[in-house]
């Protein structure tokens, strides 16, 4: 069920990229899609009633292995959020420069390259 919601988020982003004409909205679409995938990735490691995956001296290892959530996807998602931030910052910067050059955010009017 939760995974289906992630997929809905993913498709919303894809729909946004495919149909919107505004450059900033396209970048927002990318961001939504990325959020969908990140959410999916982090949910893969989640367990109901799980415990935080940190070991200290008093931790019972057997209990820990059975109940702790998987920490690996969390590390991955952190990295991928940072990467996504870089992409989106660059995308927004490009949008601003495009606006300076063309005077518009509409991709239908930004088309000098064709053929």
């Amino acid at each position: 069920m939760v995974f289906a919601l992630c997929f809905v988020l993913f498709l919303t982003g894809l729909y946004c990229i495919l149909t919107k004409k505004n450059t900033v909205k396209i970048i927002i679409g990318l961001s939504i899609m990325e959020a969908g995938v990140n959410l999916f990735l982090v949910l893969l490691g989640y367990k109901n009633d799980g415990v935080v995956p940190i070991i200290d001296r008093s931790t019972d290892i057997v209990h820990f292995l059975a109940y702790s959530v998987d920490p690996l996807p969390q590390a991955l998602v952190l990295t991928s959020i940072v990467i996504g931030l870089g992409t989106i910052a660059l995308g927004i910067a490009l949008c601003m420069r495009l606006y300076v050059k063309y005077g518009t955010f509409d991709i239908a009017e930004i088309r000098r390259l064709k053929g």
Partner: peptide, 13 residues
Amino acid sequence: LEASFKYLVLGSL
């Protein structure tokens, strides 16, 4: 800029 924007959107996708 136009080419880079296209490349960025498709590449990130």
